[in-house]
Each structure stands twice: as C-alpha cells, then as structure tokens.
Amino acid sequence: MKKDISIFEFPFNLGLTKKEHETEPGVKKLPDWLRKLGLHQKINPKNIFRLDGPEYAMDYDEETGVKNPYAIIEYAKKQSGLILKNYQKDTFHLMLGGDCSILIGSALALKQLGNYGLFYLDGHTDYIPPRLSPSGGVAGMDLAIVSGLGHEKLTNIDHLKPYFSEEHIFCLGNAETDDEEYVEQIQNSDIHYFDLYNLRKNGFRKTSEDFLKMVEEKNLDGFFIHFDVDVLNDKIMPAVDSRMEDGIDYNNLKDILQPLIENEKCFGMEITILDPDYDPNGEFTKPFVNNLIQILQ
C-alpha cells in the first residue's frame, strides 16, 4: 500500500448479547489478539490510537428497544472524536473492533467530514428495526442505525441523521437468506444489496468496481469499508458469535478488497466480530492475519 496506515483500536462489546457460557462476548479482545499474532508489527503503523470500552452490561431499554443504548451512544461520540482528532489525509485508517456497533462511531466521524459511501461486507444484513431483533443487540442492527432506521436517539446523534445515505451504501455477502422478513427490509430500501448468491453471480471484483463507479458518479468525498469476518466461510473463520456454513474464501476477499483499498477515496476499514475466545490457539486467526497483510500491502 502506498499510503501510511494508522490503527485505531476499539475493544467494545456492548452491541452483543452474551451467550450462556460466556461472562461477556470476547470480541473486545480482538485488537490485543491481532497485535499478539503480529498484525501491528507487520503493518508497522504510523500511529496507534485506542479507546477502551466500558464494563459489559445487558441493560435493555424499553424506549429504544435495544440493549445498552446510552453506553453505545456515549462510546460512539468518543470514538468519533478520537477519529476526527487523529485522522490524516493520505492515510489508511484501520479500525479494529469490537462488535459491529463500532460502525456508529465511525459513521458519526465521517458524516462530519463530508458525504461518504459505505461498503458493508457482512454475513448478515444487520438492517432491521428493533422490533425484529430477538436479542435487542445493536450489533445486529448497525447498518439500519447508520442509515436512519431505528430510534432517533441512536439514528440522530448530534442531529446528524442519516450518517450514510442509503443510495450510497453497498451491502454484500449476506448468507442468511431464509428469514424473509429480514431480507424484505433491505430489499425495500435504497441500499444496493447483493446477497451471497448475487455477489457470486455479479463477480467479487466487479461488485467492488460497481461501488467505486457509484462513488465517482455521486461525487462522494470518500468511502469506508465495514468488514465483519463472519462473511468468511465457516471452514476458515468459525471464531464468530453467529456462525453460518457458507461464505467467501480468502481469494474472494482479496478480489473484493484490493480495488477498494487501492482507491484514493478510501478512508479506511473496520474489522469486527472475530472472537479470540473461540480460537484459543490462533488456528484461524493466524491465516486471517497473513491474508490481511497481503491484501493491505
């Protein structure tokens, strides 16, 4: 990569509902885990910034219909502030989560910088209102929230709604197509939606190129990539909170990400949901780190 890289660590897990066997979701350990397995050393970032998350809780809020909304809003504001204070032009900003709700803080920052597009690569759409969520976890609704669907307290922080316009969003990789009501939500939106079947049909690199064409045609100030590792095939990445069998492989990932990362309008990328507790020996994370390095170089 020609650009310098800055790493932002966001070890946050309040968007997830813990499983019965967990004391708390392990995704907050991801930045330290990736550092331990050599990501930071191999990337040699220009800067490393960090914002620790609050203690884990599962506080359901009747008004918003989600868990931990006030802690999530507070963290998103601090996260946005940290990004705005430390972002630099001609730098690739790599955000290490955390769960998917860290997208809200990234989105708040980008909205204040201009008109940005979002490339949303995820094994789920995360585009549902609270009434369709069995858990109330914001990590399963983050795409909805950043595009304006959900309670005003989350969708309209600092009167910035929507953080991304739906027509400037590509959502791709969803392998969970059996729940019709979930899928109908996004199909009835203005988001450019490619489930896993249509992503394969359209072509991995071509879908990214179609997105870049949209960025140019709309004259956007830039764009951001959300990469939830549960979009990867379960055989190569089972260390996630919501597993599905099907998914893309590392060659597909490279075809998708390289044209985006090489584009001058790419602000950066966030990585979410990889849970070190489900990969204690690094069996799946080590190949992940090696493939990520190849894509970023």
Rank of each mutant, 00 (worst) to 15 (best):
243 R>F: 08
259 P>V: 10
118 L>C: 06
99 D>W: 05
35 R>G: 03
105 G>C: 02
111 K>E: 08
266 C>V: 03
242 S>Q: 12
98 G>R: 06
219 N>R: 12
211 F>V: 02
60 Y>E: 03
244 M>P: 01
20 E>M: 12
218 K>H: 08
296 L>P: 12
211 F>G: 00
229 V>E: 06
167 E>N: 15
117 G>S: 03
52 D>L: 13
168 H>I: 00
41 Q>Y: 14
203 G>Y: 08
54 P>R: 07
114 G>L: 02
175 A>C: 02
236 I>M: 07
45 P>L: 07
52 D>S: 14
58 M>G: 08
285 T>F: 02
76 A>P: 06
168 H>N: 15
186 I>F: 01
245 E>V: 15
231 V>L: 07
34 L>H: 02
194 F>H: 14
104 I>T: 05
250 Y>T: 09
239 A>E: 12
285 T>Y: 14
247 G>F: 08
48 I>F: 02
260 L>D: 01
45 P>G: 11
145 I>S: 02
210 D>T: 07
16 L>G: 00
134 P>W: 07
237 M>E: 05
57 A>Y: 11
126 D>H: 06
262 E>S: 15
202 N>H: 08
23 T>M: 05
71 A>Q: 15
115 N>D: 14
93 H>E: 08
134 P>N: 12
220 L>V: 06
275 D>R: 09
265 K>I: 04
292 L>Y: 04
57 A>G: 02
63 E>S: 11
176 E>C: 05
43 I>K: 00
197 Y>T: 04
137 G>P: 06
79 Q>R: 01
33 W>M: 09
282 G>Y: 14
133 S>C: 03
105 G>N: 01
204 F>K: 01
165 S>G: 01
38 G>F: 04
115 N>V: 00
108 L>F: 06
51 L>C: 03
295 I>R: 13
88 Q>M: 10
25 P>D: 05
185 Q>I: 00
128 I>D: 04
133 S>R: 10
284 F>K: 09
43 I>F: 00
264 E>G: 00
275 D>M: 12
232 L>W: 03
61 D>K: 07
85 K>Y: 01
162 P>W: 03
112 Q>E: 15
277 D>V: 14
37 L>P: 00
286 K>Q: 15
216 E>F: 01
294 Q>C: 01
22 E>P: 00
134 P>F: 07
65 G>P: 10
151 H>F: 12
292 L>S: 04
69 P>C: 11
202 N>Q: 11
198 N>F: 13
9 E>A: 08
8 F>E: 06
24 E>G: 00
136 G>P: 01
273 I>P: 01
29 K>R: 11
246 D>M: 13
294 Q>G: 09
11 P>S: 07
92 F>T: 12
168 H>R: 05
141 M>P: 01
217 E>A: 15
195 D>G: 02
61 D>P: 04
114 G>S: 00
154 L>M: 12
2 K>C: 05
253 L>F: 15
93 H>I: 09
5 I>H: 04
104 I>N: 05
9 E>Q: 15
213 K>E: 09
12 F>A: 09
12 F>I: 12
